[in-house]
Design a protein around this nucleic acid. Structure first.
Lengths: 136, 136
DNA sequence: CTATTGATGCAACTCAGTTGCATGGCCATT
DNA sequence: AATGGCCATGCAACTGAGTTGCATCAATAG
């Protein structure tokens, strides 16, 4: 497990440190997108400085190891980037957890023809609804 | 003009006050989504208290007069709600302005079949690219 | 015109995220 | 294995968005 995490870091030209291994493990094993606060709580040794954690997240995002998830709330969410394929974010209106799900080819939106002069490069889909836990 | 704004407020069960008329005018005449800061700057008489402005925005959003736009940045954006139809948000990667555009029927994404137990109610599409001003 | 309800303004606060700087640890090179 | 450079870490102090409590004032109903 840890060997695999080590490799991931190296492949992305990131120095291997205890903090980074821990943070990466937390993100890689979470099904939902996590906030700075969430991650901090899940670190076994919770003595990681908040600034270090922010900088670690920035470094990871810069190297495309994780990506920042656009959120409705005030604080940022981060999710491990499983693949570079198109994916959607599922936001549960019950528990407010954000799931990062792959988006099948057939479900992708067609690039709309906008007013002349607007050039679309990428797009992402946000789905609202209820996750299994909050199903009514 | 002002008479029209008055009516909009009344139709949404909101008291008509000078602050609200001004804020509504700013939002209704803007092509792009605006932050608290943007709105504050555009108010002719810029003596409106920041707390009042936040509360005004909350009141408007609660009555569906405007809606909060999910943003990548740290601060919230608000846009006048032209219609209740599906619409997309176009985020210019050059100037970072956010345009609120209607989404034609044909361009809407199909609800993807997710893992069992996930129930989708609404969805919104975010388009990244370049606006006419930033076109390369 | 008056009363009531809710809008406004002010002060002080919380919380996310940032910046500067000094120290310590990772890793390449020998 | 030892050395040294460079970057990751931690600490302190700061910025800026957004909130809360409370007193005052203005919009609308009667």
């Amino acid at each position: 497990m840890e060997a695999r995490l080590r490799d991931i870091l190296k492949e992305h030209d990131l120095k291997v440190t205890p903090v980074r291994l821990q943070v990466l493990e937390v993100l890689a094993t979470s099904e939902v997108a996590l906030s700075h606060h969430d991650i901090s709580n899940r670190l076994s040794d919770d003595s990681v400085d908040k600034v270090t954690l922010y900088r670690t997240l920035h470094a990871f995002a810069e190297r495309q190891l994780i990506h920042k998830v656009p959120s409705d709330g005030p604080n940022g969410l981060y999710a491990f980037r499983l693949s570079h394929d198109a994916h959607a974010h599922f936001i549960c209106d019950g528990c407010e957890r954000v799931y990062c799900t792959p988006l099948p080819e057939a479900a992708r939106p067609v690039a709309p023809t906008l007013t002349a002069g607007f050039q679309v490069t990428t797009q992402d889909v946000r789905l609202h609804g209820y996750c299994p836990d909050c199903h009514a």
